[in-house]
Simulated assay, not measured.
Amino acid sequence: MSRPPANQPPARGPVVLALPFAGRWLAGNSPARRVPSHGTDLLGERYAIDFTGVDDRGRTAAHRDWVTYVGTEPPERFFAYGRAILAPAAGVVVEAFDGEVDHPARRSQLALVPYALGQAARLRAGVGAIAGNHIVIELVGGAGFLALVHLRAGSIRVRQGDTVNPGQPLAECGNSGNSTQPHLHLQVMDSPDLSIARGLPLAFRRYREWPAGAKHPVLRDVGIPSEGATVEPLPS
């Protein structure tokens, strides 16, 4: 009988969540495209997904200028920054870390190159340098542990031991940790400790999806947003 790789848990159905926000967001590094979605099994990221807030035109920021092409930009310039992050499921907070600053954003290739060269140093610095400000929730029924990552400094509204319900405001989207543009990184894991956690499959319920390049949306009862798709939660 074949067995899963030593660093992965046995196969299981996905943990189904609500989208943790209102409005429109762009899906990136989706496990619908590849697994591991972020190119690594480290830090429980095997099935992780990223969401970047956009406007109705699909833009992540209202404008570009010369700074966009040669340097860094303030995170406040981006639509995602400061948007409310909501609990996507019921559970208990097992970690609420808020001790990292929000970094300048980088859309410029000139600014991204030196940032990429610093990746190894951030890994050596530990979970806080990668995840930034983050919340870990133990999901009800032993479904796993949910991590919401790259939150805005000073915005976390819950503490360890708090019970949370779906749709409850938890924090705001930020640009802390290993993040080049304000966005939300979300993953489900088999442990609350990101340094040893293994990623678990996830899916989302009731949302409208505009696949990349599509003019008309598709309604999803349960699914995983495709790479480059814009999504918007449907009323429950």
Rank of each mutant, 00 (worst) to 15 (best):
V93A: 00
A18T: 11
L117A: 13
E45R: 15
R122N: 00
D193C: 08
H38N: 11
P217M: 02
D65W: 06
V136D: 00
L42T: 11
L186N: 03
P36E: 07
A111R: 01
G53P: 03
G174C: 04
P217E: 00
A61R: 15
N133M: 04
A125N: 09
G141I: 07
P166L: 08
A84Q: 13
S191D: 15
V149L: 13
I130S: 01
A90D: 02
A131T: 07
S179Y: 07
T72L: 14
P20Y: 02
I137S: 03
A129H: 12
W210F: 12
L26M: 14
G141P: 07
T40K: 06
G177C: 05
S176T: 03
P169E: 07
G142T: 02
D55W: 12
H185Y: 02
S37Q: 08
V70L: 13
Q181L: 14
A203W: 01
L184W: 04
P211D: 10
Q119R: 14
D193W: 11
S195I: 10
P225S: 05
P217Y: 01
S226E: 15
P235E: 13
S176N: 01
V54Y: 06
R122Q: 08
V94T: 11
A80T: 10
R124N: 12
T163V: 14
D221N: 13
V15Q: 06
T180Q: 09
S30M: 05
T60L: 12
V93M: 00
R83P: 01
E232T: 09
S155C: 08
P192K: 05
P235K: 07
P235L: 11
G223I: 08
V140D: 15
S37E: 08
G177N: 04
A62Q: 07
R107F: 15
G99T: 10
L146P: 00
Y47I: 04
A48N: 02
G99Q: 10
P75Y: 10
F78R: 01
P166D: 07
L146T: 05
G91Y: 02
D56A: 15
A125C: 09
Y47F: 15
A84H: 05
R3K: 14
V222Y: 09
